[in-house]
């Protein structure tokens, strides 16, 4: 009798502990959700104010080519064309990803298929180190090396889209490479064995089996790199020149959404159009971040169905 009572008491003690644990983790989640929703609400309400309060049309904002929110254009409306920055962001991102992808996949193939020992002992630590370098360092190197190089090669100031794309390329390369390595490593060994046993060469096996079955993972790696490039502010701002002009070539100063944001956010007054329109830029960044996120999820799902 006494014994079983004791047991019952003990049991309820455990279940109380469980309840407390559940409550705490629920509270943590609730807090995180609250913070995320607040940020979303804050950015969205501010970003939308440009259109609701200040009467800027969304079309003008997205397609206008002149950015000078402080002044009024010929049509009597403020000059809030964000297309130069939108274009700038997309161009640097796509360029960086386009160059980084073959390098990253090539390096990953080398590290997993061709020379795993060198890959593990030398390249892996190097890449992990590179992933950890803060972006300001990449920007600084870009400023001291890439920009002067461009200036000497193409003339002009050396600031521009090409410099930004190179810095971003170097910056996302380690991330994309290490994600690609993980993906290739996760391709089961028995796929390779089956292929070789059928008389495939090593290269055929890499190309037709390993890369093919790793495609969803590799795409995810690239999209992840693009998301990082798209959202990078500091390093880009240091080398792109920050001229809010429609990019007409790769070697004259241009700008991205992030670079204009970081340049101007300290110079505007809360509640004014100049400030609100920066929030609209931030909103675009947020939407793009969401888009990249959904894209990686979608790729993952597609891959899992295979």
């Amino acid at each position: 009798m006494e014994d079983s009572q004791k047991k019952l008491a003990e049991h309820s003690g455990k279940s109380r502990l469980e309840k407390i644990g559940k409550t705490i983790s629920f509270l943590c989640i609730a807090f995180i959700v609250f913070v995320v929703l607040s940020i979303l609400y804050f950015v969205a309400s501010k970003g939308i104010a440009t259109f609701t309060k200040d009467g800027v049309s969304l079309i003008d904002f997205l397609t206008g080519k002149i950015w000078n929110p402080g002044s009024i254009g010929e049509n009597g409306k403020p000059l809030t064309g964000a297309l130069p920055m939108i274009a700038g962001s997309f161009i640097v991102t796509l360029l960086a990803a386009a160059v980084a992808t073959p390098f990253a996949i090539g390096a990953a193939i080398f590290m997993t298929e061709i020379s795993p020992t060198v890959g593990k002992k030398i390249l892996q630590p190097v890449i992990e180190l590179l992933v950890g370098i803060p972006s300001v360092v990449y920007g600084f190197i870009g400023l001291s090396v890439v920009v002067p190089f461009m200036r000497n090669t193409f003339g002009g100031s050396g600031f521009g889209i090409i410099s930004a794309a190179i810095v971003l390329f170097v910056m996302i390369l380690p991330t994309v490479t290490s994600m690609s390595v993980d993906t290739l490593k996760s391709v089961p060994r028995y796929y390779r064995e089956a292929s070789l046993a059928l008389g495939a060469t090593r290269w055929q096996t890499i190309y037709k089996v390993v890369l093919r079955s790793a495609t969803p993972g590799l795409l995810t790696a690239v999209v992840f790199g693009m998301a990082r490039a798209f959202g990078e502010a500091l390093a880009v701002q240091m080398v792109i020149g920050n001229a809010a002009l429609m990019p007409t070539n790769l070697i004259t100063p241009a700008s991205t959404l992030t670079s204009i944001l970081t340049m101007n956010m300290g110079n505007t007054v809360m509640g004014t159009l100049e400030n609100n329109v920066l929030w609209s830029l931030a909103l675009i960044l947020l939407v793009m971040a969401l888009f990249f996120n959904i894209l990686t999820r979608w790729i993952g799902k597609k891959g899992a169905m295979n």
Partner: peptide
């Protein structure tokens, strides 16, 4: 040719699995 203990088809279609050896040849 070799058949392994664990069935190890490629993550491709049935057709592509069987056609694989022909294609690489």
């Amino acid at each position: 040719g070799m058949v392994f203990q664990q069935p190890n088809p490629f993550p491709f279609s049935i057709f592509e699995n069987v056609a694989y050896g022909l294609r690489i040849a």
